[in-house]
């Protein structure tokens, strides 16, 4: 994102009367503040070109994806979720051996005040996406032995090729998983692993053939990872 665009978004966020709009028309509020980078309604265009051009993840199902507490906190103090940006390919370059992240090309999400973050999170939680996009109630919350979860994540399913579970542990092209359990609703994690292409058409994560039992283990592992982070 261009610095001037970021500045414009930040300025508009801090100057728009969020509290006034928030109760009445959250969709209008988000349209004003977030729509320049995020899709707030299901996009008709799901082409590869659109994926290359979009500036941030789609938010039209944010209410079925995020945990509200996390959203409020993160919007006030945004941290890097995707080590190589929203679309890794636009932020990598050849390094001395492996490709590396072109750090200066990454942009930072605007930081909101507590009041604005709460209003934005409230509005985002109303965007639940189309019926059936996320399998509500799919996650059974069965504990998984950490070593078993690690084995599934790293060795049996190869998730660690693209996702970090801790700094220096895992790939960089996908979102980090260390805080995913705090960030995401477990049913979303389950549904996304099951079929990322159904939720995020064209995304660079494959749709694998994974049994329900294994989806439960992987989801539990990711949720538990975050709980471990919280204790630190």
């Amino acid at each position: 994102m261009k610095p001037y665009l970021l500045a414009a978004i930040s300025v508009s966020f801090f100057t728009a009367p969020l509290a006034v709009h928030a109760g009445e028309a959250p969709a209008v509020l988000l349209q004003l503040e977030c729509a320049s980078c995020h899709a707030l309604t299901k996009p008709e265009n799901t082409s590869l070109d659109r994926l290359w051009e979009r500036k941030g993840p789609d938010l039209y199902y944010a209410g079925s994806k995020f945990n509200k507490d996390w959203l409020v906190k993160w919007l006030q103090d945004p941290t890097k979720i995707r080590p190589a940006g929203e679309f890794y390919r636009k932020h990598v370059k050849p390094g001395a051996k492996e490709d590396v992240v072109d750090e200066p090309s990454l942009t930072i999400h605007p930081k909101l005040t507590t009041k604005d973050a709460e209003a934005a999170a409230d509005a985002l939680m109303t965007l639940t996406g189309p019926e059936g996009l996320i399998e509500k109630g799919a996650f059974k919350n069965q504990k998984v032995v950490p070593s078993m979860g690690t084995m599934y994540f790293n060795k049996l399913r190869g998730c660690s090729a693209c996702h970090m579970t801790a700094p220096g542990k895992g790939g960089l092209s996908g979102p980090e998983m260390a805080t995913a359990g705090a960030r995401l609703q477990p049913d979303f994690i389950y549904s996304y692993i099951k079929d990322p292409q159904k939720i995020d058409k064209g995304i660079w994560m494959p749709k694998l053939d994974i049994s329900d039992a294994d989806l439960q283990k992987l989801t539990s592992y990711i949720v538990q990872l975050s709980a471990k982070e919280d204790k630190k």
Binding site: Y88, P94, A161, C162, L172, W204
Partner: peptide, 16 residues
């Protein structure tokens, strides 16, 4: 992401 922008196997994720 794995095979590299130069197609030589040295992608961003390959270090891990």
């Amino acid at each position: 992401q794995c095979h590299g922008v130069n197609r030589n196997g040295n992608g961003l994720n390959s270090a891990f």
